[in-house]
Computed example of a mutant assay.
Amino acid sequence: MPQTPRRQALTPEALQMMDTIARSGSFAAAARELGRVPSALTYSVRQLEDALDVLLFDRRSGQAKLTAAGEELLNEGRRLLAEMDAVANRVRRVATGWESELTLALDTALSRVTTFELIEAFYAQRGPDGEPPGTRLRVRGEVMTGLWETLLDGRADLAIGVSMQHAGSHPDIQVRPIGDIEFIFACAPHHPLAQAELPLADQDIQRHRAVAVADSAQRLTPSTVNLLSGQDVLTVPSMAAKIEALLRCLGCGFVPEPMAREHVAAGRLLALPVQRARVPASFGYAWRQIGGDKQAARQGLALQWWLGQLEREATRHALIERHGAQWLTME
């Protein structure tokens, strides 16, 4: 598609010329700064005005006074010039091995505090040129099978918090453990089950509404965990929302002990023993393997950085344990 005269006129040089005239306050001063004669600069401005069919400068005062249209073009032009510089910097950094974009999918049962601390540390990096990584991060909150799905269909580059019990055999996906999380059965102190005989039997639990976190899978078969046949269910989008529902006595259910610990200690939630035998849930992280002996060399530097952080035991422990007062929300 051929460019329109307007698009041809809005060049970086024309936008820079507008910025110089506005800063210097006159065509003569701007011409000196740009190394041009005033008449040539005036001609260029008139060409731009003709192409846009607007008046950019009010010349009646003898100075380069911007019209309303000129002010708008100047503001947008400065923004576009900054974006052009930013794109050039990102391209240069991508050429050195940084991905243009990296998408992280995280299970909502993991520590959001730790996640955002890792993001802060990622952006705090500086290369030899003193610039931060040129990679744009995208963070997705996912649940159970949905976490695997985002990795399998390419919507995520790294999935953190995948279920090790349901980890399939995929030759092009690498999986490493994060650790185990103990789940407790919890309800509000004024919930009817708080007065029931302990340990709770399934038939006791089945008579009361359960709060469940929806599996975010869209294509694969969603998982259902700890729900009893015929039980009324309130479905929420995240583990944080589930705990909020329990605090409001909207139901009962199993939640990660580290996430509920503060509420149990404060008496806002009760942890009730159940008859059903239970084992801790094992979580891990997974990423798509590029293959070959040069796998690490072919991975982008951003993915390498995140994998390096996840290799640290302290990071994995923090992702499981560090919850406390959380106010940040991932959609």
Rank of each mutant, 00 (worst) to 15 (best):
F122T: 07
F122L: 05
Y123F: 10
Y123R: 13
A124V: 11
R126C: 09
R126F: 12
G127R: 10
P128G: 10
P128L: 06
E131S: 14
P132S: 06
P133F: 09
R136Y: 14
L137Q: 01
R138A: 03
R140W: 15
G141K: 02
V143G: 10
V143Y: 06
T145P: 10
L147N: 10
W148H: 14
T150S: 07
L152S: 09
R155L: 09
A156N: 02
A156C: 06
A159M: 05
I160G: 09
G161Q: 03
M164D: 04
M164F: 05
M164P: 10
Q165I: 02
Q165E: 15
S169E: 15
S169A: 13
S169Q: 10
D172L: 12
D172E: 09
I173F: 13
I173R: 04
I173N: 08
Q174F: 01
Q174C: 07
V175D: 00
R176A: 12
R176P: 07
R176Q: 12
I178N: 04
G179N: 02
D180R: 14
D180Q: 15
I181D: 08
F185C: 04
A188P: 06
A188S: 14
A188F: 05
P189D: 00
P189I: 03
H190Q: 15
P192Q: 07
P192D: 07
L193V: 01
L193F: 06
A194H: 01
A194W: 05
A196T: 01
A196M: 08
A196F: 00
L198V: 01
P199Q: 02
D202Y: 00
Q203Y: 12
I205G: 02
R207A: 15
R207Q: 13
H208Y: 13
R209F: 05
A212C: 06
V213L: 00
V213K: 00
V213Y: 00
D215L: 05
S216I: 01
A217P: 09
A217G: 06
P222S: 12
P222A: 12
P222C: 01
P222Q: 06
S223M: 13
T224Y: 07
T224M: 13
V225Q: 14
N226E: 14
N226T: 07
